[in-house]
Amino acid sequence: MIMVIGGAHQGKREYAKEMYPDIEWIDGKECKEQEIFKCEGIYGFHEYIAGRMREGADLDGFPERLYVKNPDIVIVTNEIGYGIVPADAFQREYRETTGRICTKLAARAEEVHRVICGIGTRIK
């Protein structure tokens, strides 16, 4: 498992595509729930989480399931916890959930890259 993380519009996707030019990607904003377990790469992973939460899906154990079923996946995700705690309850939960899921995945990932201003740094 490889993770590419960073703030919005930092060039994460371009960075990941340069690292892995030959894999097929799905978009977390549009893909179906099960697609993530079979795809080679996903961008907009945070949108995938938001989508599942809106559907009321149970995300307990999701990072573990993902790691077991798709251990070679490349995940591109926004880091979303760097602002003020949102006033909206859903946004608060989404932000916390995304952080917890990504922390669990990062613990299992072979590599974690962080992209700032288009420049990636391997932090794990």
């Binding site: 880091e79 916890g81 922390t103």
Partner: peptide, 8 residues
């Protein structure tokens, strides 16, 4: 120690 929310 600093970081974003839910980051451990």
């Amino acid at each position: 120690i600093t970081g974003g929310s839910g980051s451990g």
